[in-house]
Amino acid sequence: MKAQLLEYTLRLGDNALILGQRLGEWCGHGPILEQDIALSNIALDQLGQARMLMQYAAEQKGGDYTEDKMAFLRPETEYHNCLLVELENGDWGKTIVRQFLFDTYNYFFYSALLNSTDNRLKEIAHKAIKEITYHAQWSAEWVIRLGDGTEESHQRAQTALNDLWEWTGELFSMDAIDEALLAEGIAVNLTDIKVQWDQKVNEILSLATLERPEDGWMQSGGKQGEHSEYLGYVLAVMQHLPRMYPEATW
C-alpha cells in the first residue's frame, strides 16, 4: 500500500508539475498581455499544487528526499504524469483545448478527492480545488470563444481537439494502483469522473460549435512511466540548472 500511495501521489504531483512547466513556456509569448498573465498564473497555481504533492511524496519516500529532489532529480521513466500534459504547446488553440480537457478532468477529480480517506491528499485537495475551479472556468470560456469565433479560430480549435482526443483516454483508465487505493477509499473512481467529464465536455463543445471526435485508439503509458518523445525535452529544460549546479540556491 505504501509504494502504491507514493506512486499515486507522484501521478498527481507530476501532472501539476509538467503542465505547470509547459504553461510556463508561454510566459512572455501570450497573444495579449492579460492572457499571458492568466497562463502564468495558472502555471503558478499548478507549481504550488505540485510542491504540496512533492513534499508529501518526499516524506513518504523518507531519507534525505526533498520536494526539490523529487522534482529535479528523477529520470524520465520515474515520472508518472499522464501523456496529455507533456504534449507540445502548439498554437494558442492547442494550448487552450489541452487545458480545457485537462482542467475539466482535474476539476471533477479533485472534487472527488475531497472525500479521500487519506488525510493529507484530502487537505491538498481542499486547497487546490479552489484554484482549479478558476482554471476550469477560464479554459472553458476560451474554448467557446475560439470555437464560436472566427473561421480561423474555429478551424484551429477543431484541429487541436481532433489531435488531442487520443490522449484523453488515459485520464480515465484504472490500473492496479487505482483499484487498490480505491478499495481503501484513498483514490478517486475514474469511471465516475468520466461520466461527469463527458457531460461537461459535451456541453461546452456544443456551445463552442465544435464537433466531439469519435473515440478511437487511445494512447496510454504515462502514468506507468512510459512517456512520449516530448517529456525528455521538458525535463532537459526543467532539470538542467539543478543538475548542472547542484548547490544552486536563490
Binding site: 492579460e34 498564473n41 495558472i42 497555481d45 478558476y134 472556468q137 477560464w138
Partner: peptide, 13 residues
C-alpha cells in the same frame, strides 16, 4: 471583468 487573472494570483483585473 477584463481577466480573472491579475498582477498576482489573488487578484482579477
Amino acid at each position: 471583468m477584463v481577466s480573472q487573472f491579475g498582477s498576482t494570483a489573488c487578484k482579477a483585473l
